[in-house]
Write a protein that binds this DNA or RNA. Structure first.
Length: 356
DNA sequence: GTCCCGGGGA
DNA sequence: TCCCCAGGAC
């Protein structure tokens, strides 16, 4: 049998050396290939057809499901393509193999209707009304610093910025900088109480001061004072979850591994009907599910801009409670428009985000 | 699910 | 006055 996609499989593996690769998915592919090559030199090897062999490798790989939690989605997204023998484009696979891209686009997932008009409409609304997200962000952290220090500043800024106004985060970063407390060495040596005072009134400052000490020690011990350069390693840091890990990869390393999904992106994508739980039409229940679902169809060039776009839109128009559908220019395209409970007093028991 | 912490809106 | 909000840990 002839399998168009599987011809590319050895190419992927050849592009990537397991040492340099951050993804255990690709490392596993590599291992699978090596063990199959050994079998090929063995006279008792059952197959001489390279396509058959590739097919077997991929099937074995998919069946093993050795992927870590962060690449689980890739396996799931890739599986129907491989097993149905549908070709992917080679550039996309190469991007994946090099780690520039964390999934293939799956040809079975059709983008939602009118998504480009929706994005364009939101851009227009956003340009006419300033939103808090526009003022400051962690991407501004330490712009004047050398690369390693800048990356560390980005990491700390992300750590501090959750549940905190950007101005407050920025102030805390400035105070840390003025006190020479924005490097792994300095924070590792510093007194936790002093850090606590400096970062106050950042939200959850007490927990964050403790996390900063732990993160600084890990960065010093394992990364020579730099920050981890892969998603998996960033996620091991205390206080860094999926949202911040993607942000740090984008801003710190300029390496887009995935969409940075926060509560605004999560809420708005569901209101628009842009995402769904795998194999269903139900809305997603966590930002992680939203990220995986959105990445299946949203073109890569939108992965970074989608976050500030929807966060600003969510702060000013598509608010969690009482979204302002009356002034929203894309309500014609929104299946949830005007379906929100009109006032909280009419349904005092539970908040209903929207009606299906 | 609950907690963390404080700002801010109803 | 109450209670909602936000990202992560557990």
């Amino acid at each position: 049998m002839s399998l168009p996609l599987l011809k590319n499989f050895p190419a992927i593996v050849n592009l990537v050396s397991p040492k340099s690769c951050q993804s255990s998915f690709v490392r596993q592919m590599h291992t699978t290939r090596l063990s199959s090559e050994k079998r090929e030199t063995n006279p008792s090897a059952e197959s001489k057809n390279p396509d058959d062999d590739s097919a077997k490798q991929v099937r074995v790989f998919v069946r093993k499901k050795r992927a870590t939690k962060t690449v689980q989605a890739i396996v799931e997204a890739t599986k129907p393509e491989i097993l149905d023998q549908k070709p992917c484009s080679l550039p996309e696979i190469e991007d994946f193999a090099y780690g520039k891209q964390s999934s293939f686009s799956c040809s079975k997932v059709q983008p939602p209707a009118n998504w480009e008009k929706v994005i364009e409409g939101i851009r227009k609304m956003r340009s006419s009304e300033a939103a808090p997200v526009d003022s400051m962000g962690c991407e501004k952290a330490g712009v004047s610093l050398p690369p390693k220090e800048r990356r560390f500043a980005v990491l700390i800024s992300s750590l501090l910025s959750s549940q905190t106004k950007d101005q407050v985060t920025h102030g805390a970063i400035q105070r840390l900088l003025q006190n020479d407390l924005l490097s792994a060495e300095a924070i590792n040596k510093a007194d936790e109480g002093a850090i606590k005072e400096l970062i106050h009134p950042v939200g959850f400052y007490s927990r964050k001061a403790s996390n900063m000490k732990k993160v600084a020690k890990i960065c010093l011990d394992k990364y020579d004072g730099d920050i981890p350069s892969s998603l998996e390693e960033l996620l091991e840091l205390p206080g860094i979850g999926p949202k911040m890990a993607h942000l740090v990869m984008n801003v710190g390393w300029n390496n887009v591994q995935g969409i940075c999904v926060d509560t605004h992106v999560h809420r708005i994508c569901n209101r628009l009907g842009w995402v769904s739980r795998q194999g269903t039409k139900q809305r997603t229940s966590t930002p992680e599910q939203t990220r995986e679902s959105l990445q299946l169809w949203l073109p890569k060039e939108e992965w970074v801009p989608i976050n500030p776009l929807l966060v600003g839109f969510g702060q000013t128009v598509c608010t969690p409670l009482r979204p302002r559908c009356g002034i929203c220019k894309i309500s014609d395209y929104c299946p949830s428009a005007f379906k929100e409970t009109p006032s909280p007093s009419s349904t005092p028991k539970k908040k209903r985000a929207f009606i299906e």
